[in-house]
């Protein structure tokens, strides 16, 4: 299978004035490959480097060393982002626009024709259940509605690769289930999904493969069954052990 998302030996250091201790290493030589058509779950505790990985993949942050590519194109070239959809964590959008205007704006950036954009916008607003609020400014949306608008925005160009940073955060159980359904549907359509999450349960249900990152290093990669089997019956315990936390039951 072809790797459509690839990170080689990524190292990211933050040299900021805020980091009083000098440089802060967010990623230490990360190697990662996501293949076409799979759903990849990216796990790790807070501050492990998940968002940073995605930031590098989308060209927001220049890696100190190493390289990253999407569809075989270096991420520094904007064309690499033509076929991807991205949902940032903590989504905020132009508050003075309505969901419809927002989606139309993004569709223009992808060069969609008016007709195609109209069709796509209707379809997506129905998918994320924001049809009733399509003309309202985003300022008036609830957190979950904003998150759903973000998901719609990530899908506007019918992308082949989706990069989702904690797509279910801020959603109620029903909303989470719907996001899971959307991910599964996309997988059915042959799309690739790369997403980070803290919800091990949902990762277990939708992911083909999982990677666990801790302190900027990828600890394990593989199908869930592989990660689970040699150690414990349950992903949570495996996760905790990999990140070096001794559970009470283990001791």
């Amino acid at each position: 299978m072809a790797a459509i998302l690839k990170a080689e030996n990524l190292r990211v250091e933050f040299r900021s004035r805020e980091a009083a201790q000098g440089t802060k290493v967010a990623l230490r030589g990360l190697n990662l490959e996501v293949n076409a058509g799979e759903v990849f779950g990216y796990l790790g505790p807070n501050g492990a480097g998940k968002t940073t990985t995605m930031n590098v993949l989308l060209g927001f942050v220049q890696p100190t060393s190493g390289a990253a590519s999407l569809f075989g194109i270096d991420v520094r070239q904007p064309i690499a982002r033509q076929r991807i959809g991205y949902l940032p964590e903590l989504t905020y959008y132009y508050k003075f626009l309505s969901a419809e205007e927002l989606l139309r704006f993004y569709s223009t950036l992808f060069g969609l024709s008016r007709l195609e954009a109209d069709r796509r916008i209707d379809e997506l607003l129905k998918l994320v259940e924001l049809e009733h609020a399509r003309k309202r400014p985003i300022r008036t949306y609830s957190k979950g509605m904003q998150q759903r608008a973000g998901l719609a925005q990530a899908l506007i160009n019918n992308p082949d690769l989706l990069v989702l940073d904690e797509p279910t955060s801020g959603l109620d159980p029903l909303g989470r289930m719907k996001v899971r359904q959307i991910i599964q549907r996309l997988k059915g359509e042959g799309k690739t999904v790369f997403f980070s999450s803290h919800e091990l349960g949902e990762v277990e249900t939708v992911c083909d493969r999982v990677g666990i990152i801790h302190q900027g290093e990828l600890k394990v990669v593989g199908p869930i069954s592989e990660i689970r089997q040699p150690r414990h019956a349950n992903l949570e315990q495996a996760f905790l052990e990999i990140i070096g936390f001794e559970t009470q039951s283990a001791s």
Binding site: P78, P88, Y93, Y94, F110, G150, A154, N157
Partner: peptide, 14 residues
């Protein structure tokens, strides 16, 4: 500040 730069730059926009 509003982090709208992220979804925007994730599009094919230089």
């Amino acid at each position: 500040e509003n982090r709208t730069l992220l979804p925007l730059l994730a599009k094919p926009v230089t």
